[in-house]
Design a protein around this nucleic acid. Structure first.
Lengths: 118, 118
DNA sequence: ATTATATAAAACCATTTGGTTTCATGTCAA
DNA sequence: TTGACATGAAACCAAATGGTTTTATATAAT
């Protein structure tokens, strides 16, 4: 169910630092474009475009209320990110190798918290 | 420690699907450029450039051996990805809200496996 | 009815990106 | 020492990206 090849996927969407910031903002609470803009030093139009990209990736959803458009964070697509991460940082050979080659690093903690997955 | 603002960070590096594929390949085992190239339909030069980007993001490391350059996956930077993910998908208000608004979804499992973090 | 607000849409622009092709260089094998 | 192989480097190109400014439209507020 779902998926489909939209023009912008999650990976591209979060590639831009401004976009990541916007997401952080929206994690606190939903906001209208103008208010989001006030947190940055670029034009409202630029922010609106970023929101479009995020929207295509379904990381945000915008509903129009009165004259303003309020954007809301959508967490769902972030799971794809986790999947990607897990593909590497789970009980894989690459991880074991990594540990062997990087003694005394904080890797183990990460693995501990990950291995209760599937 | 580490960090520093390199030209390419992890987020940008993994934004490209080809680059993600390359990482997957290298997760199996280290490979020379030519061999990596053989898995794609684009030129060797193009792949070499992708490897440069990945290298700048420190997601791979290349050592020269004889006439070939062998690339190896580096898992470390992927942690930044996890951090980003956790920022949203951890016991945050946004997550609770998400669950309320999306009943009967697989969200809970994700949270279960995440909450043993810090 | 008029004005101010909030966004939408379009045109434009410089830079970056993801490719290519071509030429140069180092290394292995015969 | 002469090819063949693996990569490096440079020049070039079209399309995408991240911005801008300008113009239009809908909704509030006075």
């Amino acid at each position: 169910m779902s998926a489909s090849a939209q023009k912008h996927d999650v990976f591209q969407a979060i590639a831009d630092p401004t976009r990541r910031e916007v997401l952080k903002l929206l994690a606190e609470k939903e906001l209208p474009i103008s208010e989001i803009t006030s947190h940055f030093s670029i034009s409202r139009t630029a922010i609106a475009k970023h929101l479009q990209v995020l929207s295509e990736a379904e990381l945000v959803r915008g509903r129009k209320q009165g004259r303003e458009k309020i954007y809301q964070l959508q967490l769902e697509p972030l799971k794809e990110l986790k999947q990607f991460y897990d593909q590497f940082w789970t009980n894989r050979l690459s991880v074991l190798k990594h540990i062997m080659e990087n003694p005394g690093e904080s890797s183990l903690r990460v693995i501990e918290s990950e291995k209760s997955q599937d």
